[in-house]
């Protein structure tokens, strides 16, 4: 870098660097360096017999043919397609209800719905895990006392829905707040004129409120996509309760974790992490492009 700067250029370019220098140094250290190191790791293979060797893109080739990786990706994609719309719809509904001004105890509702977000994900999952228990948990107690036969939420066919429920509970409030704050920026005069024009509440929502919070919707969607692809805490904690339902490759992140911590496949783990990073980036970018283009 220094060599190229020796070439006589306008002095102005240096002043700029001085301002962003401190940021760039920290950015490079805590952001670029780990990524660079992961890429470096992903090009090697360290084996119990034979030691460390450079393998080029072998790890990437292996990952693309790894059924475990694809099943993990498929699982979070399904989660994304089902859970995110439900969560965002609920959040939107609550935000509109609170914003409508017809709700008594508005701030009470706002705080209550937001509260689960303040509970750490680990604690929330543990709490739900106890409730899900079909033997000793809440589900078990309900089945016992009412004679119902609610299926075990921690069995393999239900576990993803059970996790979706936890995540929805955690994040409805957070997304509601994003939507609600966007709604508050709509000038009141717009509503007044709409009323004068004879528009009903539904019409106002469709023609004024929804277009106004479009940006917030896109942002919330992108956050949710990233969140879904990075699903880790919930399965990692429920794994203790349902070891046979949550595999070591349940989500891509959990797979990367298991690879490095149970099998010492640090190199392959880094590869999986990088591929997931790229996929997440691409999808989030596409959503952003689409979301803003049609505006």
């Amino acid at each position: 870098m220094a060599e190229t700067a020796v070439v006589p250029t306008r002095r102005r370019s240096w002043a700029g660097w001085r301002f962003i220098g401190p940021f760039m140094a920290v950015f490079a250290l805590v952001f670029l360096a780990p990524i660079g190191y992961s890429i470096y790791l992903s090009l090697f293979k360290n084996r119990l017999i034979g030691g460390n060797s450079f393998v080029g893109l072998d790890n990437y080739r292996q990952a693309l043919h790894d059924p475990n990786f694809w099943s993990a990706l498929g699982r979070v994609s399904l989660f994304l397609v089902v859970q995110v719309p439900i969560m965002l719809f609920l959040a939107l509904l609550v935000a509109l209800a609170i914003d409508s001004g017809r709700l008594y105890g508005k701030s009470f509702f706002r705080v209550t719905v937001f509260l689960p977000y303040a509970v750490p994900a680990v604690v929330a999952t543990l709490m739900w895990g106890f409730m899900y228990g079909s033997q000793f948990g809440l589900i078990g107690s309900i089945n016992d006392s009412l004679g119902t036969a609610i299926p075990d939420p921690l069995q393999p066919s239900w576990i993803l829905a059970a996790i979706g429920n936890i995540v929805t509970w955690e994040f409805v409030g957070y997304n509601m707040l994003i939507f609600y704050s966007a709604l508050r920026t709509v000038p009141g005069s717009l509503y007044e004129s709409a009323e004068i024009d004879g528009a009903g509440e539904l019409r106002i929502i469709r023609s004024i409120k929804l277009p106004a919070i479009r940006g917030a919707l896109v942002i919330a969607t992108i956050f949710s996509i990233i969140g879904s692809f990075q699903l880790f805490n919930e399965p990692a904690i429920l794994q203790n309760l349902a070891p046979n339902a949550i595999t070591t490759y349940f989500t891509p992140n959990y797979y990367a974790y298991s690879l490095s911590f149970a099998g010492q496949q640090y190199n392959y783990s880094a590869t999986v992490a990088i591929i997931m990073g790229v996929i997440t980036m691409v999808i989030a970018y596409v959503v952003q492009l689409r979301g803003t283009k049609e505006r």
Binding site: L48, Q155, P243, T248, G263
Partner: peptide, 21 residues
């Protein structure tokens, strides 16, 4: 096995299925 720690970590991925399906 000389890599039993790893093998045990994937026991529930494989044999575990027999317990729940």
């Amino acid at each position: 096995l000389p890599f039993q720690v790893y093998a045990n970590s994937v026991f529930n991925d494989t044999v575990g299925k027999a317990y729940v399906s």
